[in-house]
Design a protein around this nucleic acid. Structure first.
Lengths: 206, 206
DNA sequence: TCTTTAATGTTAACATTGTTTACATTAAAG
DNA sequence: CTTTAATGTAAACAATGTTAACATTAAAGA
């Protein structure tokens, strides 16, 4: 782990902005959104509560940044799952595998980091924060565009397929997160059913 | 509107428990989950803050009850949408129409009362509150059982179809709620696409 | 290099919140 | 009619988000 050299004195933190976001991510992941407090974050980063306001308008703004960061973690997990597959799909089946991989990663993110999924799409009507990078919706879309180019998805369906597929994946991840389905074995079975159902839902033609 | 006669003195409220839940529902629906405060609810119901603790363990408990109440509103909307259809479906198509009606009502609930959907499935890992009545999941399940009885859904699929269909509907409602899809016209198109995709997803055979 | 200025931190106070304790009032039971 | 349990109030507490006034340092300009 490489850290930037700070000044000799410890008066200035060096990179408080991202330190607060990281601390927030840890706190949310471990103890849930409810126990995310400004003063605790200040303590964690070794700084006074008022210092937070030099970098964020208020707690809601900080929360929105943490939410964005967790969406980006989700996006990285989706990208990571794609790196184990042929980068440029040559066949319809290859392209479909890529779509499924991204959906699987999305659900895994929800199951493994349920508290992050909880905050991820809160305050999505965000104030002026830039676009996510990576952006999970865009990753879905890219997979569907590949399927379209290979002739497995009609142009008209391409217009609605992203939202439809996203709904199924997000809904299952969200419901599983809320502890609605019992043991992990059951979740795995249902996850497979959802992922297998998506191609039929959006009318993929192999 | 019929109200129960209260005692002559106003010292005791009469039915503070449900009054607090109703006030909470109103507050959440109008101003969102974040601006739900114990003291404000006490003010709204004309009672001191400490009185709340005679009926609820703490604010989280009250929130869980409000969440349950909003899930039950969702359930009623689903039932209401069924009342405009033949009560006992005779054909596969009738049964399918009923399934679609419940899904449509679910999504409408999310779009029309986005803040209620936000709280509905928070704290679903609830403390000892009884079962919802009506229960939205059970309503889905009943429709799918009808489809199974009529031979439109295999026994094995019946085991997973409820969760799969629920995921698609809940996911779309949830995403639409977070303001991800632009205008209402677009939402309507996508809603139709999701609802039409569900029978294919769970392999309904007409 | 020296001075100035903007960025970034601290301390102390404030209003507000959820919660608890001790007590008051009323409804219900014996 | 008395007792008791249920249900309300008032006052205090610790903790939180937020702000204002001030301190320290880094960066920019002479």
């Amino acid at each position: 782990m490489l850290t930037l050299k700070k000044t000799s004195s410890d008066y200035h933190h060096g990179d408080l902005q991202s330190a607060l976001i990281s601390a927030g991510l840890r706190e949310v992941e471990k103890h849930g959104l409810n126990s995310l407090g400004l003063r605790q974050l200040a303590l964690d980063t070794g700084v006074s509560p008022a210092a937070v306001y030099k970098h964020f308008k208020d707690l809601d703004h900080l929360k929105a940044c943490i939410a964005k960061a967790s969406r980006e973690i989700l996006g990285s997990m989706m990208l990571k799952s794609l790196k184990q597959l042929p980068d440029v799909p040559k066949s319809k089946l290859d392209a479909l595998k890529r779509l499924r991989a991204t959906g699987s990663a999305y659900i895994d993110f929800g199951v493994q980091k349920k508290n992050l999924l909880e905050i991820a799409f809160i305050s999505f009507d965000a104030p002026d924060l830039g676009p996510d990078s990576p952006n999970s919706y865009q990753i879905f879309l890219d997979c569907l565009i590949d399927l379209n180019k290979l002739g497995a998805l009609s142009d008209s369906n391409l217009l609605i397929a992203p939202a439809v597929a996203w709904s199924a994946v997000h809904g299952f991840a969200s419901l599983a997160t809320h502890g609605i389905y019992g043991n992990k074995a059951e979740i795995e079975v249902l996850k497979d059913a959802v992922l297998s159902g998506i191609p039929r839902m959006i009318q993929i033609e192999l």
